[in-house]
Design a protein around this nucleic acid. Structure first.
Lengths: 356, 356
DNA sequence: GTTAGCACTCCATAGAAAAGAGTGCTAATA
DNA sequence: TATTAGCACTCTTTTCTATGGAGTGCTAAC
């Protein structure tokens, strides 16, 4: 059987109605509120076909029909084609003035949630380059050193090193020189065992300080690369606005995932791989078990220089895909604007904060 | 009317039974499962008295009684007296080996939640001293400086300063000397306008760098003092285990507060003021609106040197107060153990991380 | 002071009945 | 041949009623 124009119109009507109401929609509704001028009986016949084709199902005999994942998929694919690049300006972003990166991101995700009435997530931008830029040891007191490591993208990490023996300013100076000349400009993979043992030898009695510095480097790079990257969420309570998600069972599982955050990484990773497009996961398509009853829409934002993160919306399958995608695009644009677009990448971001 | 021994026994039995079942408890239950050997009729008379005294209420005529906030309060106060300091060892804390402070705290709060089956919160330790310990400017490139500020308690904050004009190593050196000699050892209140304009004058053309450094100082102190301090929560999904909290309305509000976190500050503040004891908020006593149907138990932990934070449990009013208080005590003890007890305060904590 | 007994209240549960929504099928129609 | 009207049928939802049970309060007896 083929999905002809009329079937498509009807399917579309069903989807849209269901998006609004969340209730199964019957033939009569479609017949009345479409300009097809067909009787409910005809619609019924078509619906029967559509059901056979797998686009809609009945929750039970003698209920209306609801769209299947497949229908949503069709609908979304069509949307993507239709709306080319019409980014509507979200006027009141209001985030320009907040100075701290982390605060801004929290704001953004909150905004996204309250704007869409769904749950929002945002992964902090992480740097893909990972070259060591600058290492500094400073003496706090004879038995304590402050170690600061800066990697490209101006991610800063500090660490306090406790010493067994006293150390002099001069020794600290030497160590600084040594570390910077040998490690600066290198990536994680370039700092190999040979180099490490070399440097340790040169450091002589202070080799264990070198070890600690390397730990810090490893840590910041690891933190930036995977697992541990920051994810913010907001609007978890919005799931209670959609009855189909708010029974104890489901709600509990969802809340739990949102709280744990680590599985949300899956979206970030998938989003990274897919390039900078907008990604839509409908029901079973989701990589996250507890969201098989939801739809998730994600987008990648880029801050120039390979610094990138992911924003996403989690809602019921009957979410307003159009509005959600628009919101994501707008927010992505705003993030670019605030933190430096590709255009002005020459002037570094006004103020990039250290990692959390 | 007076709360004599018998009334008390009965009230206690009512509370305990209700804690277990969550259902209103009737006179017959008490008569059977207490060793008072009184008939249900007698119990009924006493219950009638207890109701008059405000310790129990009937949800409706011809239901059993449930304890009021007042009854819980009595019960808890009694508990505190009874259990002096019998800290039961929680064997499997398993946190000793994780090196990063933040990770440990997240672990701890997760543990607390899963151990108690309630929702847990934890505020990261914050320092009460707030003296500047060390300031460092380092040149990243001719137009960028890295500014690191360390305050007592080894809280580290960094910030990147963008410059209008190039700067030389020598100028950086001079600025470092100036800043450290003038600001080190001072508290926020000691850094006043007079001093600031003095230093700015001495800094000459680089006075705006001084401003930025001061901003960083202000920020770290502000972050440590109030508003913005880190709070971790875990086990939000546990509220679904208690029917009296898991209707959409209530659950939504609770989840929302837990997510926003900022109002949870109220508990931290209150806890700070109350000293290091254990604090119990029953229903209406809670400073947080959305938790009027819950009980909240908090405890302050101290890491020596004035570094302190709060741990807390949020659950239904019929929570197992005894176990919760024990858990809190145990966790508090463990935190001390891991991060350095008062005893070994000479040897600073193995590894205190920078603020998030 | 304690208890047995009883009438009474209220809630929870189950079932039956009614109402409603929607379908599928058939036969008539354009 | 495609469309439609009509109707029987199915299944859910809602409403109502009846019934049982839990628990109380009161009274009278011990």
């Amino acid at each position: 059987m083929e999905l002809d124009a009329r079937k498509e119109t009807i399917l579309d009507a069903i989807i849209q109605t269901y998006l609004k109401t969340g209730e199964p929609v019957g033939s009569r509704t479609i017949s009345k509120y479409t300009d097809l001028n067909l009787s409910s009986a005809t619609i019924r016949n078509e619906m029967s076909d559509l059901e056979e084709m797998g686009y809609i199902i009945q929750p039970h005999t003698s209920a209306g029909r609801i769209p299947t994942d497949r229908a949503y998929r069709l609908y979304v694919d069509r949307l993507v084609v239709k709306k080319t690049e019409q980014v509507t300006a979200m006027n009141s972003l209001m985030i320009a003035k907040t100075s701290r990166m982390e605060e801004v991101l929290k704001q953004v995700v909150r905004l996204l949630a309250s704007n869409t009435n769904y749950t929002a997530m945002l992964s902090a931008p992480s740097y893909k380059g990972n070259k060591v830029k600058f290492i500094q040891l400073s003496k706090l007191n004879p038995r304590q050193l402050l170690n600061v490591v800066v990697i490209e993208g101006n991610i800063v990490k500090n660490h306090i090193i406790d010493l067994k023996d006293d150390i002099t300013e001069e020794q600290v100076l030497k160590l600084n020189l040594l570390l910077n000349t040998r490690f600066n400009g290198l990536t994680l993979s370039e700092i190999n065992l040979g180099l490490i043992s070399n440097v340790k030898e040169e450091a002589g009695s202070h080799s264990e300080i070198v070890s600690e510095v390397l730990d810090t480097i490893a840590e910041v790079i690891r933190a930036e690369t995977d697992e541990d990257m920051k994810i913010y969420t907001s609007g978890a309570n919005n799931i209670f606005k959609y009855p189909e998600l708010s029974d104890s069972e489901r709600a509990s599982r969802l809340i739990s995932t949102l709280e744990e955050k680590d599985v949300l990484q899956d979206f970030v990773k998938a989003s990274d791989e897919s390039g900078s497009g907008i990604q839509v996961y409908i029901g079973e398509e989701s990589p996250v078990e507890s969201m098989k009853d939801c739809s998730v829409v994600t987008a990648t934002y880029e801050l120039g220089d390979g610094l990138q993160g992911t924003i996403g919306i989690i809602g019921p399958k009957r979410m307003d895909y159009e509005r959600v995608m628009d919101s994501l695009k707008t927010v992505r644009a705003s993030l670019n604007e605030v933190f430096g677009l590709p255009e002005n990448r020459q002037i570094p971001g006004k103020n990039e904060e250290s990692e959390a």
